[in-house]
Design a protein around this nucleic acid. Structure first.
Lengths: 261, 261
DNA sequence: GAGCTGCATG
DNA sequence: CATGCAGCTC
C-alpha cells in the first residue's frame, strides 16, 4: 500500500478547474491535494467540484489574492487555519493544516516578498520562521509533512540562472538561510529522490517559451519529518499541466509514501 | 455565375478570428464580407488575416466600441467612411461604403439607442434617415446594397416576443417607421426569399439557451435597390457560427445574386 | 454574458 | 503573460 500527496499553486482555483479536471482524469487521484493561490472568497470556492470527486476539502480565501485549500480522500480529524502561534493565527489565507491520525499536513503559500528592500521581505522571513516553529512543535508528537509554494529556491540547481538572481527574493542568501533554518528538522523529499538539476515547478508567464526552454524555478516543495521521509517511495514534478491550455504558472509536485494515510 | 454578400456583427474582430476562420474554412468565401463592431483601432486591426485569405479590406475603428470593416475578393474602385452628408462625414466608425463598378455597397452599424427616452435614440433616428438619403443618392446612378446591423426588427415576425417589446429601441413604433422610410427605395432581400417567421440573426448572451430556444431578433439586414433585388437568387441566415465556442451574439446573414460583382 | 478599458498582482 | 477587480456597453 502507498499514498500520495500533491502540491499545486493553481493561480485561481476557479480559472483552473478545467486543468484540475483533466489532470485528475489522467492520473490516479492524490490522497492529499494541497492548493495555493485559490484567489477566491469562501462563498465562491467551488466546494462541490471537490466533493463530487470524493474529496473532503477545507479552504480559506479572500478576493483576488492568496487563498489555500487542503483536499483529502480521507477526512482529517482536525483542521487549523493560519500559523498557530500561541493564541494568534495570522496568515489564515496562506496556511492550512490538517491532521490525519498522528500525521500533520501543513500547506503554505509563503509571501513572495516583492524585493529584498521591501517590508514584505521581512514578513516573508517571519512567515517561514513561524511556520518552522509550528512544524517543529507538531513533529514532537508524530510526523509532519510541510508542503506548498515556499517561494524559495534552496540551491543553485533549483533555478535556471542562479548567477543573475542573487538579489531575487526567492534566491537571496538571507531567504535561503531562513528557509534552511525553518526546515532544518525536515527532509526535502523531492531532492532526496531526484538529485539532478533542471527540475522546476514554476515557469514565469512573462518569459517567452519558458517551459520549452526550461527557464524556471523549483519553489514548490514537499518536506517531511525524518520518520516519514524514510518511508517516502518517490517524488516528482508533473510538467504536463503546465503545457496545457490556460495553465497556471506552476505545476504539481508529488510524493508517494509507504503505508496508508 | 453568381456572387455572395455576407453581413456579420462580430462583437470584436480580434476575439472572433477563430470563428471567422472556421466559418470561411467551412464555406465558400463570400465575395463581399461586411463586419460590424470590430472594436479595435486601425493600428490593431488584423489586416493581414484578411489579405492572407485573398480579401481586400477597408476599415475604421476605435477603442472598445463601434468599428466597421468591408472586405471583398474584388478590389473596390472607391471607399468612403461615414455618412456622406454634403462635406460632413459623421459616424466614420459606424458606416463604410465601397463602390464596385456601378454598385455601391453600404455597411452600417446603426446605434442601438439605449432607451426610447435617451438622446441616443434621436441619434439613431438621424443615423437611419441620413443613411437612407445617402443610399437614395447613390441609387440614382446605379444599384445599391445596404447591409449591416440595423438594430431594428421591422415586423412582429422578426423577434420572439413582440408583445412585450413595444418600448424596446429596436421595435418601438417610431424606429420601425423611421427605418421603413429610410429604406423605402430598397427591398428587404432576406424577407423576399424567406417569408416565414422565426428566422433571427441575433440572440442575446444574457438570455439562457437563447439559441436552442430560438429567442432572438432579426436586426441584421440585406437591402437592395429594386434592379439588384430582382437579380437576387437567395438569402439566408447561417446559424452555425452562433453555436460554436466563443461566439458573437450575432450570426452571419447572406444573400446571393446573379452575375458577377 | 461577453466584449472592452485600466489598474493591481506575481 | 495571465490572473483578479471595477466600471462600461449592448
Amino acid at each position: 500500500m502507498s499514498w500520495t500527496v500533491a502540491t499545486f499553486n493553481v493561480n485561481s482555483v476557479r480559472s483552473r478547474l478545467p486543468i484540475l479536471e483533466r489532470w485528475l482524469d489522467n492520473n490516479s487521484k492524490p490522497d492529499v491535494l494541497c492548493l495555493q493561490e485559490t484567489k477566491t472568497q469562501d462563498e465562491t470556492f467551488p466546494l462541490e467540484w471537490f466533493t463530487d470527486r470524493g474529496y473532503s476539502v477545507s479552504f480559506r480565501g479572500q478576493k483576488s489574492y492568496n487563498g489555500v485549500a487542503l483536499a483529502s480522500l480521507k477526512e482529517p480529524s482536525e483542521v487549523v487555519f493560519g500559523l498557530v502561534d500561541g493564541d494568534l493565527r495570522p496568515f489564515d489565507t496562506r496556511a492550512i493544516s490538517a491532521r490525519f491520525g498522528s500525521l500533520w499536513v501543513v500547506n503554505t503559500y509563503v509571501p513572495q516578498g516583492k524585493s529584498i528592500d521591501h517590508d514584505d521581505y521581512g514578513v516573508k522571513q517571519d512567515f517561514l520562521l513561524k511556520t518552522g516553529s509550528m512544524v517543529s512543535t507538531m513533529a514532537e508528537e508524530g510526523e509532519v509533512l510541510w508542503v506548498g509554494d515556499m517561494n524559495v529556491a534552496p540551491q543553485e540547481m533549483d533555478l535556471t540562472n542562479p548567477k543573475t538572481k542573487g538579489n531575487h527574493v526567492c534566491f537571496h542568501s538571507v531567504i535561503k538561510e531562513v528557509f534552511a533554518r525553518a526546515s532544518s528538522d525536515l527532509v526535502d523529499v523531492f531532492r532526496k529522490h531526484r538529485p539532478d538539476p533542471g527540475e522546476f515547478s514554476f515557469w514565469d508567464y512573462r518569459v517567452k517559451d519558458a517551459l520549452s526552454r526550461n527557464i524556471g524555478w523549483r519553489i514548490d516543495h514537499i518536506l517531511a519529518s525524518p520518520g516519514l521521509a524514510d518511508r517516502s517511495l518517490d517524488s516528482w514534478v508533473d510538467r504536463e499541466p503546465r503545457s496545457w491550455e490556460k495553465p497556471s504558472d506552476h505545476t504539481p509536485v508529488l510524493a508517494s509514501f509507504e503505508g496508508v494515510i
